[in-house]
């Protein structure tokens, strides 16, 4: 898993697959309210793109996120979730009460925007956690 694997056929095929997997992940995230899907599935799909790149091209993959960066990204995602919740607290509502936000919008639009905010946080956290687990599994042990 740490060194390059496969020939030019596998390399080219995976280069074609990766953009579609990532686009599908973003679609699942954005369209998650009205169709199956959501933050968790979108994060797992985006993580699959990175893990596939690591599996085929090894540690020097063109499309790679290292384990430490992944841990920082997971923290950012969790912070985003909490930030949206505390923001509604600051506006005078309950925790994660999206309808309280002061913008001139319909209530349904406020709900959609708030849910999109926390779903982006969940996506970042799940994606980074899966990459961090994969990195911990494939890391070379220090002698």
């Amino acid at each position: 898993m740490n060194e390059r694997f496969g020939t030019v056929v596998l390399d080219t095929a995976f280069r074609f697959v990766i953009p579609f997997v990532m686009l599908y992940g973003v679609y699942v995230l954005i369209n998650g309210e009205s169709s199956p899907g959501g933050g968790f599935q979108a994060g797992a799909l985006l993580a699959i793109a990175v893990v596939l790149s690591r599996l085929v091209q090894g540690e020097k993959a063109v499309f790679n996120i290292s384990g430490n960066t992944a841990l920082i990204l997971a923290g950012i995602g969790t912070f985003l979730y909490g930030f949206v919740g505390v923001l509604t607290l600051c506006w005078g509502g309950n925790f994660l009460e999206y309808g309280i936000s002061p913008w001139a919008m319909l209530a349904a639009e406020k709900h959609a925007l708030g849910i999109l905010g926390i779903e982006i946080g969940v996506t970042l956290c799940v994606m980074a956690t899966i990459i961090a687990i994969f990195d911990a599994l494939t890391r070379k042990e220090e002698v």
Binding site: Q41, A44, I48
Partner: peptide, 10 residues
């Protein structure tokens, strides 16, 4: 489906 792929890889 998604978790099946991830867990098999792991």
């Amino acid at each position: 489906a998604v978790i099946g792929v991830v867990s098999t890889t792991f």
